[in-house]
Amino acid sequence: MEPILKGRGLVKRYGRVTALDHCDFDLYPGEILAVIGDNGAGKSSLIKAVSGAVIPDEGDVYLDGKKVNFHSPIDARNEGIETVYQTLAMSPALSIADNMFMGRELRKPGFRGKFLRQLDRPKMEKIARDKLSELGLMTIQNINQAVETLSGGQRQGVAVARAAAFGSKVIILDEPTAALGVKESRRVLELIQDVKSRGIPIILISHNMPHVFEVADRIHIHRLGKRLCVIKPDEYTMSDAVAFMTGAKEPPTEKNAA
């Protein structure tokens, strides 16, 4: 099977710091791929390289077998790759609805939308509310409240809802449950399964081993800027995975990588 998203020989250096060292990456259609690794292993750089947020110094990214050159996250988004960043990428002073539709605002039909370019606020607010309800974010009282008035977990929930609403090819989640409560974490995991059942593959970066082992089909273990190995969660235990990523144990040969 051909990977839907593929990276080959990716290198990214920040000055004298090497974040990615000839790293390979494969995401197959319809799967949930978890990416785990120590802090500073280069997980976020890898994700940024395949989502257009950073341009790799060397190496190629392929989407659906075709080489792509993303110069910005907008390019990746236009190809249907949606990312929830660790920083969440929200504008605090703007409302939830404004943030969810940033860069793809809906305009009113007819004259007012076409010539006055007026936004269709009621429609955007309704969709935003529906998406939040799908995620179980019931503690948000007012869809027009500024994002800065939300708690950290609510903000994360809004960011996840935004990605789930618009991602069509690949959804990348960088630590999506880090700040979430029990109920909201559960909802995000359910949502991940739900998105998978729609046939959209997901890249999940997480330090939460129980979550990773619960939802992932394959686990990409990242160490010192490159892919150490790829394991299946039913063949190894959580402590094995931790041992591989910290270097306490030799990795298995790369039988699952291809």
Binding site: S91, P92, G103, Q118, R121
Partner: peptide, 29 residues
Amino acid sequence: AYVLRHTAWGRHVYAVGDDPEAAELSGVN
């Protein structure tokens, strides 16, 4: 006042002023 409040361009002006990196990542040129 209309343009800043009711068009996408106006919302993007606010987003860029708020946090340019976040605006870039969430799809604003």
